[in-house]
């Protein structure tokens, strides 16, 4: 087992453990902290794949901004322990089975297509490894995808306006 594979299994186990803990924690703030563990582990996996810019954005935007927003709202609303009502029995045992089936289906389908992907990848992988992928990524953003990139700023502006309108107190 190479060191890379060892790091992968370590980070994968960490992320799966965080996701399982998200399900089993009763308090929303504990769930939020578990989700932060998942996100940091995923950032490590991105680094392992050589996507260092995505890893940095993952830590800054997901781990920093979005999760802080979640924790902020949990504390603002003073969310307590989850109360379990027995109103929906449907999402019990069948729910687990269906989720497991979905997991297996997605995994097999994607893994099969991944096999053809690897075989079709020629020396392109080496190009990414040699050049700085952040530089290539910035060239792509500001050259090929500049209009979608500018549109996202409008999206964020609209989202800010929407959040303000939703959360303001009616006078």
């Amino acid at each position: 087992m190479t060191a890379e594979l060892l790091v992968f299994f370590l980070l994968a186990a960490l992320s799966v453990a965080g996701a399982v803990s998200l399900i089993f924690q009763k308090h929303p703030i504990h769930s939020a902290l578990s989700l932060i563990v998942v996100m940091v582990a995923l950032a490590g996996l991105y680094l392992l794949m050589g996507a260092e810019f995505v890893a940095a954005v993952q830590i800054i935007v997901y781990g920093g901004a979005i999760m802080v927003l979640f924790v902020f709202v949990i504390m603002l609303l003073n969310a307590g322990l989850e109360e379990h009502t027995s109103e929906s029995k449907l999402a019990g045992f069948p729910g687990i089975l269906l989720a497991l089936a979905l997991m297996g289906f997605v995994a097999t389908t994607l893994a099969r297509s991944a096999g053809s992907f690897v075989s079709s990848a020629t020396d392109g992988g080496k190009i990414v490894a040699n050049l700085s992928s952040t530089r290539q990524l910035s060239t792509m953003i500001f050259k090929d995808f500049v209009y979608p990139f500018e549109l996202t700023s409008f999206l964020i502006l609209i989202a800010i306006l929407g959040a303000i309108v939703l959360a303001q107190r009616e006078s």
């Binding site: 992968f8 994968a12 992320s15 799966v16 996701a19 399982v20 998200l22 399900i23 929303p28 769930s31 939020a32 998942v38 996996l45 794949m49 979640f70 709202v73 949990i74 609303l77 969310a79 989850e82 109360e83 379990h84 009502t85 999402a91 729910g95 687990i96 989720a99 497991l100 979905l102 997991m103 297996g104 997605v106 995994a107 994607l110 893994a111 991944a114």
Partner: peptide
């Protein structure tokens, strides 16, 4: 391996979506 891990995480997300009763979770 990455794809299988991704599918597992997605499935756990679906499970959490089905089982959690708190809207923030």
């Amino acid at each position: 391996y990455y794809i299988v891990l991704s599918a597992i995480l997605f499935g756990l997300g679906v499970l959490a979506f089905l089982f959690k009763r708190n809207i923030i979770t």
